[in-house]
């Protein structure tokens, strides 16, 4: 559906490019996760896709059509749900929805139907007459999402849509978002919460410093990761054992052994026991998304 080829962008006056020759292919009818530390370029990429910024290099195409032309032809087809509560606090939920539907050019029955669908999707019926400034954090997020769905977009850009909400609201939002592809809406989802991305995204890209570090399905990304045993000892191991291990940063007594073999692990534990080294903690297996993310982006952490 969406092809991002060699896309670059640099903010005026910035020493480094916010995006440097990014290539991504985002298939239709799925939830695509964009992960990255602060300053990785996620919001810049979202801004390019929503038309707020124009790429300084490369091309963005939807169904083979240049993005700008596609947006002109289908002005409601791409919707942005920003990180902020981008609506009017002094207006009621219903007034906010009516306003944004009007701005989309919807009138009469089409507007009423769009508002009704958005209210039902985000389950806002009970608070339709309430001013937005009086809503809880979770309800505000739901209103933010509902506004994004008014134009029945083909591509929905969600920029950290669950920040600051309680676990129940987060669960509701994630379930709702996961249902969107079935209704014909492709979702691009940025978040700092790995478990959210693991839960609802079919494909994931990890960005750092404006570059794509890894891209693929969750299974593909984790398959690339090597299995290992990570453990913490009560004392330094003898030199012969230490030579086989990899010291882990942050603690002198934490070590890693790259192996997926339980037999190798068992032999190591036997040697440690022989040297009177007690294992305080042990983790064995393939890395999860968070470990992969931390490993890939460690050098890129800025905050």
């Amino acid at each position: 559906m969406l092809a991002i080829d060699d896309v670059s962008f640099r903010y005026s006056g910035a020493p480094d490019a916010a995006l440097a020759a990014v290539n991504l292919t985002i298939p239709a009818d799925g939830v695509y996760g964009l992960l990255g530390p602060n300053g990785a370029g996620k919001t810049t990429l979202i801004s390019l896709l929503s038309g707020l910024l124009t790429a300084t290099g490369g091309t963005l195409r939807i169904d083979g059509q240049p993005l700008a032309a596609f947006r002109r032809e289908h002005p409601q087809a791409i919707a942005l749900v920003p990180q902020e509560h981008a609506f009017y606090p002094m207006l009621t939920v219903a007034e906010n929805l009516a306003f944004f539907a009007g701005v989309l050019g919807l009138a009469g029955h089409a507007r009423a139907a769009a508002i009704e669908a958005a209210v039902a999707f985000a389950r806002l019926e009970q608070v339709a007459g309430k001013r937005a400034e009086q809503l809880s954090g979770g309800l505000r997020r739901r209103l933010n999402l509902a506004i994004g769905l008014l134009g029945a977009p083909r591509l929905l850009l969600l920029d950290e849509p669950t920040v600051g909400v309680d676990p129940q609201s987060r669960s509701f939002l994630l379930e709702s978002i996961a249902r969107l592809p079935a209704a014909g809406t492709t979702v691009i989802y940025t978040s700092h919460y790995m478990e959210e991305v693991e839960a609802i995204c079919q494909r994931i890209a990890i960005l750092a410093r404006g570059q794509v570090l890894a891209e693929g399905t969750l299974a593909e990304l984790l398959r690339d990761g090597e299995a290992a045993a990570e453990f913490e000892l009560d004392r330094p191991p003898p030199a012969a054992i230490a030579a086989m291990l990899e010291a882990m940063p942050g603690c002198d007594l934490k070590f890693r052994l790259r192996t997926g073999s339980t037999a190798t692990l068992a032999a190591l534990l036997e040697q440690l026991a022989g040297a009177s080294c007690t294992v305080r903690q042990l983790a064995f297996g393939r890395q999860n998304l968070e470990q992969l993310f931390m490993r890939l982006t460690r050098r890129s952490l800025r905050d």
């Binding site: 002005p75 942005l80 920003p82 990180q83 902020e84 609506f87 989309l104």
Partner: peptide, 20 residues
Amino acid sequence: SIFVIERQQGTLQRLAAMGT
């Protein structure tokens, strides 16, 4: 006061993204 709210809360960005 309305305009600052629109800018601070990203509403202007949203309106721009809606092609306004």
